[in-house]
Every structure is written in structure tokens, then in C-alpha cells.
Amino acid sequence: MSIGYQTLLALAKSTKHQGELPNASAHGFATNASCGDECDVWVRIEDDTILDVSFVAKGCVISRAAAAILAERVRDRIEVIGTMNGDDMRGLLGADISLLRERCLTTALKALQNAVSSL
């Protein structure tokens, strides 16, 4: 990993963007059945652009850190969300997460993609 585990752990423990978002435009949920990670994501969208994201994540450090960075950083147009993948999450985290943890890395992203596609 190019950033240390402690940085990921700090992200995972962060309370920022946690909880249901007031006035959310959409909600999405995803789970990683292999290890029980779960993530709820709420998103506020105007003019097809993401203005705010919040989440409730349960699971390993990587899945929770990924949810936190997604909520903090993603402010793209919604059509971009559908094209994002694990490598984009690695870029956001600045961490070279192993392919073995791909599903942990992308659970929150899938929840966000589910939210956007529900609109």
C-alpha cells in the first residue's frame, strides 16, 4: 500500500458523512457476501451532479475506508459513477489495495451505483 494502514484505519474510524442524508435524492445498498461487509449510501443530486454523499458502513477497515473516501471526494456527474471501478477506488484512497480485497474495496461504490441507477 502506498498509504499506511493507519491512514486507512483513521478513515474507517472517521464519523464524517456518516448517517442518513437529509433531503437525499436516492439511497443504495450493497453487500459483500464473502465477508459480510454492508454499506448504505445516500446521495443528493441536482442537475445530474452529485452534491453530497453519506453512508453507514459495516465491515472491514478497507470497506469502511472506501465508503468514507467516496463520501468525501465524489462530486461527479452521475454518468461518471457507473463507469467507476476498483482502480478508481484505489486512486481515491491512494492505496494499492490487493485484488484479493476487491470486493471490500468496491462495496460502497456498488451502493452508490445502486443509488444512482435507482433514479
Binding site: Y5, S34, C35, G36, C60, V61, S98, L100, R101
Partner: peptide, 19 residues
């Protein structure tokens, strides 16, 4: 979380499974 523990053990050359 067991995946975090297994990941760290793996980095030390110890192979266990989690999940």
C-alpha cells in the same frame, strides 16, 4: 474484522483464511 487480521497475517507470511 477477520479479513483485516488475515490480511496482516498474510503480510507476515502466515496463511489463514477469513470470512
Amino acid at each position: 474484522h477477520p479479513h483485516d487480521v488475515a490480511d496482516f497475517l498474510g503480510a507476515e507470511g502466515i496463511c489463514v483464511r477469513a470470512g
